[in-house]
């Protein structure tokens, strides 16, 4: 079981890191837009394999992703780290509490929302210290999170459906 989990963590982390790096090549019209495709992988592993696997993939994605992108240990890394961890935990908590009453779509929205909220909070607490400036950025970032969260949620639903069929 343990070694099987480790194999899953390795393969799924590779997927998450790949998506995380490749999504940056997509040109976006808005500066704060991050698709967060890696969350599809996190969400899948959370639903299929549980919290431990999902958290491990989150941590590996944040660590290796930042090394590849070049933000390791910078402010961007701290934002990515805290956002990823809180987002995965929030999705797990909702899955645990609501179980079958919520699908990957709602969980993805929760994940995106908490990811953004955490990043805004950490940016304020550690780096910005200007509440008006952070509040000014909040609406745009939260709205973009709803859009990307919906896209990732639908994608996850589609993948789960495919997996169940096969």
């Amino acid at each position: 079981m343990q070694s099987q989990d480790n194999l899953r963590i390795a393969i799924l982390s590779a997927f998450a890191i790949g998506l995380h790096v490749v999504e940056r090549l997509i040109p976006s019209p808005v500066p704060w837009l991050r698709f967060g495709f890696a969350n599809i992988v996190i969400l899948l592993s959370l639903i299929l394999y549980g919290f431990r696997v999902a958290v491990m993939i989150t941590l590996i994605r944040v660590l290796v992703g930042s090394l590849l992108v070049g933000t390791f240990l910078g402010p961007g890394f701290l934002l990515s780290f805290s956002g990823g961890l809180v987002s995965t935990t929030a999705m797990y908590a909702c899955l645990r509490v609501f179980r079958a009453a919520i699908s990957a779509f709602g969980l993805s929205l929760i994940g995106a929302f908490f990811h953004n909220l955490t990043q805004l909070g950490v940016a304020y607490a550690l780096f910005i210290r200007r509440l008006d400036a952070v509040l000014y950025l909040a609406p745009a970032i939260l709205f973009l999170g709803i859009i990307t969260g919906s896209i990732n949620g639908v994608a996850t639903l589609a993948i789960i459906k495919r997996l169940r069929e096969s």
Binding site: A101, I102, S103, F105, G106, L109, I110, L142, I146, G153
Partner: peptide, 17 residues
């Protein structure tokens, strides 16, 4: 495949935004 709670979440996060 979506559940009622999904839409509640959507409404909630939109409201907060």
């Amino acid at each position: 495949d979506t559940r009622p709670l999904d839409w509640l979440v959507l409404i909630l996060v939109t409201t907060v935004s």
